[in-house]
Simulated scan of single mutants.
Amino acid sequence: MKLGIKAIKDCQAYMFLMGDQPFITKRLIDRLIEEYKNDKSTIIVPYYNGRNGTPTIFSSKFKDDLLQVEGDKGGRDIIRRNVSSVKKVIIDDGKLGLDVDTPIDFKGVIS
């Protein structure tokens, strides 16, 4: 995450996608980008089955905060500290947010 942020010299926002979510679609990504463009919120979070998920968009105003993240927790703490800046985008298809980490997880989603 940090390498990507440092590599980009000038941008409005950062979108973070996980490699273990095989059901993320172009349509979902486009919807989240549109929500970011059309709303004054500076953090866009998809909301699947009552839970925050990814891909998440952070305004570049959070660049320094993102560069301070340690470990494998992503921007969760930034989201918690900036609740008034968060727009949750309800995603009806919970499958889009599924996280597939193991072969057993994969079998479960294709069954």
Rank of each mutant, 00 (worst) to 15 (best):
M15T: 12
D92A: 13
L17K: 12
I78A: 04
I29M: 13
V45W: 05
R80N: 13
K26E: 09
M1L: 06
K61N: 07
L98N: 12
D64K: 07
G74E: 02
I110Q: 10
D20L: 06
T102Q: 11
V109M: 10
N52P: 05
Q21D: 04
P22D: 00
Y48G: 02
D72M: 05
R27D: 15
R51A: 08
V45H: 04
I110M: 14
G94W: 09
R31K: 13
V69P: 03
K26C: 11
G74L: 04
K26V: 15
K107E: 14
D99G: 13
I90H: 15
G71Q: 05
R76S: 08
F62T: 04
Q68W: 00
I24Q: 14
I44G: 10
P22I: 10
L3Y: 07
M1E: 03
I33S: 06
D105A: 00
Q68L: 06
F16R: 04
M1D: 03
S84G: 07
K95Q: 13
I44F: 12
I57Q: 02
I91C: 10
I33C: 11
P46H: 11
G4Y: 02
S111F: 15
V69I: 12
I8R: 01
F58T: 01
G19C: 07
Q68C: 04
Y14E: 02
G71H: 03
K87R: 14
K37T: 00
T102V: 14
L67N: 01
F58G: 01
V100D: 10
R81I: 01
N52M: 12
G108V: 08
V109Q: 12
R76V: 06
I57W: 04
I90W: 11
D65Q: 06
G108H: 12
P103W: 15
S60Y: 03
I5W: 04
I104F: 10
R80A: 11
E35P: 01
D65W: 06
D65E: 11
S60H: 03
I43D: 02
S60V: 01
F106S: 12
D93V: 09
Y36N: 00
F23H: 05
P22A: 07
S60L: 04
D99M: 15
K26F: 11
R76T: 10
Q12G: 07
K73V: 13
A13V: 06
D30A: 08
C11P: 06
M18C: 08
S59A: 08
K37P: 02
P55V: 03
L98K: 13
G71M: 05
G74V: 01
I110W: 12
I79V: 12
D105N: 15
N49R: 04
V45S: 04
D77I: 00
M1H: 02
R27H: 13
